[in-house]
Design a protein around this nucleic acid. Structure first.
Lengths: 151, 151
DNA sequence: TGCAAATATATGTACATACATTTAATGTTG
DNA sequence: CAACATTAAATGTATGTACATATATTTGCA
């Protein structure tokens, strides 16, 4: 398949300049990638934000994480970690206990069932890593440019 | 201010490779840009998807658009245009009338009030075009790489 | 013509986001 | 130590997303 330029994808042939085009292209491509990932997750009955939180908890395991720690590590800082943990708790992939040393905080831990889910997903998700069409040099250029955007 | 690498932003110092890092960086940066835009829109009491639909309608004006046309032109193809039009209609920025030549379809038109809103926003939104930290060459590289990702 | 398939939009439900507010526990300070 | 501020998490409300289904209209064709 040939490269589909962003102009064709959204049927708006004219952009004011390369910057406006880049902005729209970036948001569009990120959404496209997230949809690819969400589709891969569907068979595991889990969403992308839920998966991201599970991975953070696995990184901490066997230490617990608090909601604050999850928010710090999450890609989208403003999202509502508390309610995503609700869903994971309902599926028994995490546990919540009051933190003994600070009773305002909550210790969140991944369960064996959660660890087992991530193991099953590791094999599958790696296949869809999304940027496989790029050369290594292009991937490096991309990272440099993206970091610069957020200056 | 100095460049904040993605490793520092999300406090996960190790990525498997440049591809995994690029994927996370891309999603993170797109979300960051969208939040910047949403903040600029807040004072106008409008959301990003609502703004995007209004711009499409201005592009068609004075011809009407159907829901199908909006979906074709929208960045996120799967989103629910019908309900976003609901919100814009409630604010009197658009009108909905049954299409005379095809009574299944709905003619959606931007109102004078909607056009006036966009005019007020044009000045403000242009200031936050987001990629202004890049050189022209970097913006071009970015567009080339993003198009290639979606191959 | 009549009836099934296709089309255009709307609606239902579950989940997530964005922002403000609430509740409870802990710190601070006069 | 009591009053007030701060912190951690949860909750309320509006919006949007994702996917399935429903409703109405039009098209196609036997």
């Amino acid at each position: 398949m040939q490269t589909m330029r962003i102009e064709d994808e959204i049927k708006q042939p004219v952009f004011k300049d390369e910057y406006q085009k880049g902005l729209i292209n970036l948001v569009y491509t990120a959404g496209w990638l997230q949809q690819q990932q969400a589709a891969a997750f569907r068979e595991f009955d889990i969403t992308l934000p839920q998966f991201n939180i599970l991975r953070i908890l696995r990184g901490q395991h066997p230490k617990p994480a608090t909601v604050n720690l999850l928010i710090e590590r999450m890609l989208d800082k403003t999202s509502n970690a508390s309610r995503i943990v609700d869903k994971l708790e309902a599926k028994s992939f995490v546990t919540r206990t009051v933190c003994p040393s600070n009773r305002r905080a909550v210790d969140i831990r991944i369960t064996d069932s959660g660890l087992e889910l991530l193991q099953r997903m590791d094999a599958s998700v790696d296949l869809h890593h999304g940027l496989k069409t790029l050369t290594l040099e292009e991937a490096q250029q991309l990272n440099t440019i993206l970091d610069k955007i957020r200056d």
